[in-house]
Design a protein around this nucleic acid. Sequence first.
DNA 1: TAGATTTTGTTCGACTCTCGAACTATATTC
DNA 2: GAATATAGTTCGAGAGTCGAACAAAATCTA
Lengths: 401, 401
Amino acid sequence: MRKMDLNNIRVATSETARDINRRVVLNLIRTHQPISRADLARCSGLQRSTVSAITEQLIEERWVREGAIGHLPRGRKPTFLHLNTDRAAVIGINLRPGRTDLALADLSGRFLAQQSISTGEHPKVFINELINHLRTLIKANPQIDYEGIGISVPGRVDPKTQRLIFAPNLNWGEVDLKTPLERATGLTVEMENAATACALTELWFGQQAEGARNFATVTVSEGIGVGMIVNGERVYGNSGLAGEFGHISIQDAGPQCRCGNLGCWEVFASNNAAIDHYMQVSVNGRSGKASTRGQIAAPSFEDLLRLVEQGNLKALETVERMARYLGQGLAMVIMSIAPDIILLVGEVTTAWSHIEPIMWQEINKRCRIPLKTKIVSSDHTTQPRLRGAVALILQKHFGLP
Amino acid sequence: MRKMDLNNIRVATSETARDINRRVVLNLIRTHQPISRADLARCSGLQRSTVSAITEQLIEERWVREGAIGHLPRGRKPTFLHLNTDRAAVIGINLRPGRTDLALADLSGRFLAQQSISTGEHPKVFINELINHLRTLIKANPQIDYEGIGISVPGRVDPKTQRLIFAPNLNWGEVDLKTPLERATGLTVEMENAATACALTELWFGQQAEGARNFATVTVSEGIGVGMIVNGERVYGNSGLAGEFGHISIQDAGPQCRCGNLGCWEVFASNNAAIDHYMQVSVNGRSGKASTRGQIAAPSFEDLLRLVEQGNLKALETVERMARYLGQGLAMVIMSIAPDIILLVGEVTTAWSHIEPIMWQEINKRCRIPLKTKIVSSDHTTQPRLRGAVALILQKHFGLP
DNA sequence: TAGATTTTGTTCGACTCTCGAACTATATTC
DNA sequence: GAATATAGTTCGAGAGTCGAACAAAATCTA
């Protein structure tokens, strides 16, 4: 039960019932395909005649197509319906420091084409470069009906102005990506923070949070980001800044964070934090003294994980420390919104067997309330950020308005 | 844009449009009364003929009544419409340790009658006593059409089982209040955590969070509770446990909390924490040693606030310490869900002039992101918990399904 | 003072949509 | 070949909104 938004009233017309039921049917086809009209009627509760009318319309508009004929122990054989994935396509962009991924995806979220370009230092130059790539991509597939462009960004997006704000990793300042891209391509552009994009991926394509309507995604990379879904809907917060758990102090006298605050969670539990800590302990171990750092090259986080697999004790100690701090921060996430599921995204999940027990030990110590939050690790090779960018556009057709 | 809940499909029938538009009109009358049919058509966007049909129905069902005739510079005079507050009434209950308040409220949330009984030690005995009071109340006003009973409780309510769980202040264990009360009165019973009930009060009757759809209410009393509204809707979380910011550790080596964890926020910022600290500093000051506590009687929190007004330096220091810790915890609330407004509820708000500047100093130190959360103090004499209990029932008629 | 103008509120026919019964189509079983 | 079962279509009844036309009631203007 939600309060009506009286500043944005949407009254129902005679077409509203069709709009709602059409979305019901389209969603059922999406999730249950292949499915017959009779089954659609059974699991939606609509009359068979109504389902026929709606599917006729959906087939005419090419969202749905008829497929194989099924067979039953007796009676007339049903005609199966499928989502017509060729109906339209969406462009997804995963913008991050260093590299930016572009993909073309069909209605089911499957990638049809993919490329990767380097992310420029200066936003204006990069936007022009991005526009050129988009134009080439669109021209290469002129027969496709493009539904829009979704972008996941390493920062927050103000829901009012749709500008990129608070993206310290990019160091771009406040940038308007939407307007130039829309003007150049003629397509609608939607942007969302990467962690929230991962949450959308789970909401729309997810296996692990199947049917969950309250969950959080925690991305662990250079920093830590949290995206939240509450009541089946994204949590934006003021200026789009909800989910900045990464910048909550967990130690008042801790090291300074790039945000200006002291002892933020991500100063202890991010990939960068782990690399810093590893450098500190390994240099200390070698020379017996502190402050000899910088003489050996810092490993990448992937290097660190490889060292753990090779049995390096200092690397292992570093990852275990990271697991403890991850647990401490996840305890905050759990206590605040009590999600059914937390999905952990990042390279760190490849060391899950080392992480999980220590992380849970820390969480159980801190969460003394009788709730049952599951924590699952996501396979980062499935590109959840990029798929979330696609979901950003697809939800317009499958979501409730 | 939210995802459809495929486990709980609600298709649209031919009456759905009327149901939606009826709620639109009813809400507009509630918030804009007195208002004419023509104005309703203008601000809803519906046709005048449709508004007439809907209002006719609402008048017939006694939700709305015609009132005075307005006057305009020219043209036919409009007939004003009002909410018919006598149409129905709601019983609100504020259950808390020690005392429980009962109230009868009309459709606008105004109290018609009120009483207070002592909260029993044993749930079963108390429930029977409560039933007797409810029966007497209902019999005393037999002409009223009762819509239901809303209860705000000092704990959390599992949205699935509707049982009271995690209420350490009551020490009742897991109790089913709903079933016996529904059986005894024949009315539907809804329960909600007190902090969330306060948030509902603000959502439906609020002046300060006017039109806000994302905010949090923080109740400071024996402990600290947080209730959240996101996208105009309550946040439940798993087992109804969302909002337990009060039990997030802010100091790993802090004193033990009654929840079992160490250094929880409420161990530092609650009324009880302030009383404990005052006792410690005033006894130390007197004897020069610690651990002489218990020899003088502990003041109530209201006593402490009076001492501040009287210029007692140790009481002032105690309240300022409380303000610092409140700021620290509010910073967590801000960073996590980025609310537009935080509403602070509790006796502590009577010392707002001492609290506010110190609290903000702490928040500004910790929140280095460009958001604009307002923090306002609520007048606890308006009984937000009790009015939230009423809102719990009223939202069924005014909210969106 | 009569007609023009303006605004409120109602009436009515056209259109959209769902429901549900009846009907057609197609399969298996006895 | 008749009975039975299931899928999908057709069609009329009922509920709703829209929008134009109309009725009602007030002020303005000549």
